[in-house]
Nucleic acid binder design. Structure first.
Lengths: 158, 158
DNA sequence: TTAGCGATGCTGTACGAAACCTGCCTCAGA
DNA sequence: TCTGAGGCAGGTTTCGTACAGCATCGCTAA
């Protein structure tokens, strides 16, 4: 599977439309026609998280198996599906950002795309700058997480 | 089956009628003519829960197997079916929200539709905003519900 | 090494179609 | 006869699509 990598800044027009970097679209390949899922990251970062549609289907299958009579499970479902917007590409490779996500992320007339491998994020410039600073500190403090390949790999590696 | 995804806001007229988002109607497909079931979520969220008719039949089959001579079982049945309203679409894709559900959810002249995959919810705007905030914390604390693939997969995996 | 050319990608505008909202009309029941 | 619910039709707005211009990047040739 292809990867979303590097950063780029794009204009958001009056309709809330924004071009997705061509590299990201290329990475989507056949999944381009299915569009993207956009939502608020569960960890609370002030940005828009973007996923290929196939990832959404995966999520839904997991959430489907959760009990409907538990507030915790339903809260999780609300955050992972209820805040999610399904958007499709126009002929020029643009998507429309929903109002509530623009408001949440602070994006107005410009958006920065940040590749994160299998997903990517969309940020307002100043919020991203602040996030860069704060994560640098946190990352430095937690770099040791990478230093235990034995247990970590056993779980996650495919 | 198509999915209910994304959010949208619609006006409620004086008669309690509201347009269901066209994408949701499209997702219903053939089930459109059968209408929807509306009720209060079991977990107590202050919104209206909406289900395709086929989902109601599923629930009914489950309840059918419960003993009719136990108060607990009958209470459950009351909550799941006794508070449920069956609504149908008019020619313009609208449904009528019953008074008791509008009162319960606080919906007056505007309603926000929230897709949750196989079901969707209808919220009053401020209640939804508050719910978004509170569920984010709960979801973050319970994200580990998704992190136990071993037991979940054993049941659900095809 | 640099200038020129072509291709690709991004942005803005315009038009048509669909969706949505409002008001009016009709019918049924009290 | 009055009231309320449901159906119908018009107008407005939004959305999706198409088209065109501009900028940027990379390649080629001088």
């Amino acid at each position: 599977m292809a990867l979303f990598l590097s950063r780029s800044v794009h204009k958001v027009d009056k309709k809330g439309r924004v071009s997705v970097p061509s590299g990201f679209r290329a990475a989507l390949g056949d999944e381009l026609v299915q569009g993207l899922g956009l939502n608020m990251p569960i960890v609370g970062f002030a940005c828009i998280e973007a996923l290929p549609f196939s990832k959404i289907e995966e999520r839904m299958n997991v959430l489907d198996s959760l009990p409907v009579d538990e507030a915790e499970a339903m809260s999780l479902a609300h955050q992972m599906l209820g805040t999610l917007a399904h958007v499709t590409f126009d002929g020029e490779g643009r998507i429309v950002l929903p109002d509530y996500l623009m408001e949440y992320s602070g994006i107005r007339d410009s958006a920065t795309f940040v590749g994160l491998g299998r997903t990517f994020q969309i940020w307002e410039a100043e919020a991203l700058a602040a996030h860069d600073v704060s994560t640098r500190t946190i990352a430095r403090d937690n770099i040791k997480l990478l230093r235990k390949p034995t247990s970590a790999q056993a779980e996650g590696e495919t």
